[in-house]
């Protein structure tokens, strides 16, 4: 808006200047207004023969403006126009270019931030990594040694998958906190995640026997999680 008004103002000034220069300074000199010089000449010449011819030729004399005045006026006009264009560029165009550049940079900067906080992209990547490893993980849980070790190994697999997808665990974060955060990110079925998390904690930290029943429950929960992942990502659906 400011730029438009500046440009319009500059154009107006240029048009006025062009009009003024086309009329030329002679108009001002030739004006009818009482000029002391003209009066003086009039009185000076009045004593001489004041013929109408002479009167007619006399005003023609100032019309023949010397060319150097015209050239000077043109130069002044040009200087004014160039000056106005420079002023417009300084106060109108340069800030516009700068703000556009700033906005573009901000937009460029915002993109990695979004990636860093992992709203969309990582969840997709983690979900795909989990699904790609789903069969091996299930086999690990179903066949690997004692139920206790199988449940722990299965839970650990989630961590490996998420880390491979670029979402590493912070050292101060407990395994359950981290994996539940990751599974929450990929929109896995909440009750199944909670159940599997409980089974993992029991297998990892308790001393009482972990039965085959627990392995079966863990398998059920794992299958539910994988099913919801398939549904949410649409992979292989």
């Amino acid at each position: 808006m400011a730029v438009v008004s500046v440009v319009a103002g500059a154009l107006l000034v240029v048009v006025l200047a062009a009009w003024a220069s086309s009329i030329g300074p002679s108009e001002v000199l030739r004006g009818d207004g009482p000029s002391p010089a003209a009066t003086a000449t009039a009185t000076a010449t009045s004593s001489e023969s004041a013929s109408p011819d002479r009167e007619a030729t006399e005003p023609a004399e100032p019309r023949g403006t010397p060319p150097w005045i015209r050239a000077f006026a043109l130069l002044v006009n040009l200087a004014v126009v160039v000056g106005l264009v420079l002023v417009a560029a300084r106060f109108g165009v340069v800030p516009l270019v700068r703000s556009t550049r700033r906005r573009r940079e901000a937009r460029r900067r915002r993109v990695p931030e979004r990636l860093e906080f992992g709203v969309l992209e990582p969840s997709e990547a983690v979900a795909r990594a989990m699904l790609a490893d789903a069969e091996d993980q299930r086999r690990l849980l179903a066949e690997d040694g004692s139920p206790r070790n199988a449940v722990v190994a299965c839970w650990d697999r989630f961590e490996t998958q998420a880390a491979a997808a670029g979402l590493a665990r912070s050292p101060w974060e407990t395994s359950a906190e981290y994996t539940m955060r990751v599974l929450d990110l990929v929109d896995a079925d909440q009750p199944a995640v909670t159940r599997l998390g409980e089974l993992y904690r029991e297998a990892r930290f308790s001393t009482h026997p972990v039965t085959e029943e627990r392995r079966r429950e863990a398998l059920e929960a794992l299958d539910v999680i994988h099913r919801t992942l398939l549904r949410s990502t649409g992979v292989g659906a």
């Binding site: 040694g145 070790n149 650990d156 050292p171 990892r204």
Partner: peptide, 15 residues
């Protein structure tokens, strides 16, 4: 301190 100290590992030595 809670934000620094490493928590127990995911897997202990297998039992």
């Amino acid at each position: 301190v809670l934000g620094q100290v490493p928590t127990p590992a995911t897997r202990d030595a297998l039992r």
